[in-house]
Design a binder for these strands. Structure first.
Ligand SMILES: [Mn+2]
Ligand SMILES: [Mn+2]
Ligand SMILES: [Mn+2]
Ligand SMILES: [Mn+2]
Lengths: 219, 219
DNA sequence: TTATTTTGTTAGATTAGTCTAACTTTATAT
DNA sequence: ATATAAAGTTAGACTAATCTAACAAAATAA
């Protein structure tokens, strides 16, 4: 059984690998807010446990076993977030920190029940895919809003950052998942977009925001 | 903030104090399955934190602060058990071990929501009282079934042990909380009771079992 | 009341997880 | 190509939580 601490390393490594491909000790230590030597020695330990492939001065990689275990933790995290939102009435901006703790609970039946009660959801409240029972993720084919063109109509499918402030910002302008956005105008010099959706006719979104919104195209 | 470990000490000390009055290092170490020196040094640490009153060779006592914090952990434990049974469909024999972990989650909103969704329950699925938000327990005036007399009719109100096996034993004979029991006969030499309830006309319960069942008298 | 057993304490070791300081390797800039 | 900077590693220290061994105090039995 892995410790709470080890699980957080696995999860961070899994997420970074998927975002950036190669993961360095440096990046991982930044992500986890730990010093490099701390991460270095944990990597050796996880390598002993056959969860990580560690070679001096080389990028870090998860083994298949490591990917599976990380996937299962992320599954627990995302099922929990979904459960908190759908069954307990929390807002999508409130659930990440709670899930961060509950993901470490050792009780497969608990997560199996969440899954059943939710009807086997495939995405969490932020639009991220929920890995299956073997930790395998089914990747989704979304596009950053910032990569779309003027005139396109797209559906908001996911957010890539789930900080409280960002999600509250989206709440404030009714930018919920599923909303259909029409891109009215893109300012070429700074990438700011003017979009219309629902009852809102002309919301302006900075490039920073648009880069964090993932949308579905061919509607 | 107290650690997971410290919380388990506080809870165990609280429970033992309520059962037995005085608590020795020895008892506490047995309860927690730790060696005496381990408990001894943790008691000194908790005394530093003003949670425990520790004097060499004297019985252990919780301070008011210690009682409050212990009460709040027990509240989280029992609310969780109730939530798992009432809202997630678990059996009363399945929830203790899960609650043992979830009680340490630092997220007051989570437990506040459980409380609301459950309609502010006052007892857990085993009939134990749920402490209020300040950790105060409202004690209930129950009697052990083994202390009742032949001919009495009583209502099963709580169980004092919540091991999986014991609760499955009760499930097996439909001995659920709320059931009205009529005591038909008590064997004077071994305290075995013959009781009738529901559709069952003559169940025999050993003294060991009867001592673990708490009942309400004046119906 | 003395001897024995039980309980409690102290001292010192161990493991997990973290840190800082010093050093080495690799990458980047001149 | 060399110098400098950044990233990675090693060594050693620290804290929390546990243990064992040895000793001390209190309780119990003879
Ligand atoms: Mn999350
Ligand atoms: Mn976590
Ligand atoms: Mn319980
Ligand atoms: Mn616990």
């Amino acid at each position: 059984m892995n410790s709470f601490t080890e699980e957080n390393y696995l999860k961070a490594l899994f997420n970074l690998s998927n975002e950036k491909g190669e993961v360095s000790v440096n990046e991982l230590s930044r992500q986890l807010q730990l010093k490099m030597p701390t991460v270095n020695s944990m990597m050796k330990k996880l390598a002993e446990k056959k969860l990580v492939i560690y070679e001096s001065y080389k990028p870090l990689r998860l083994t298949e076993k490591g990917k599976k275990e990380a996937g299962i933790i992320i599954r627990k995290h995302r099922l929990t977030e979904m459960y908190l939102v759908e069954k307990m009435g929390f807002g999508w901006e409130q659930v990440h920190d709670i899930a961060e703790q509950i993901e470490h609970i050792k009780a497969p039946e608990l997560f199996a029940r969440m899954d059943t009660l939710l009807g086997h959801p495939t995405v969490d409240p932020h639009g991220s895919p929920i890995p299956d029972k073997n930790g395998k993720i089914r990747w989704l084919h979304y596009t950053k809003l910032s990569d779309c063109a003027e005139g396109e109509t797209v559906k908001l499918a996911a957010v890539t950052h789930s900080s409280d402030e960002f999600l509250k910002f989206l709440n404030g302008r009714s930018l919920n998942l599923g909303v259909k956005l029409r891109i009215k105008k893109i300012e070429s010099f700074d990438g700011t977009m003017e979009v219309s959706y629902g009852k809102r006719n002309a919301e302006t979104l900075s490039k920073i925001v648009c880069e964090k919104l993932l949308v579905e195209k061919n509607l």
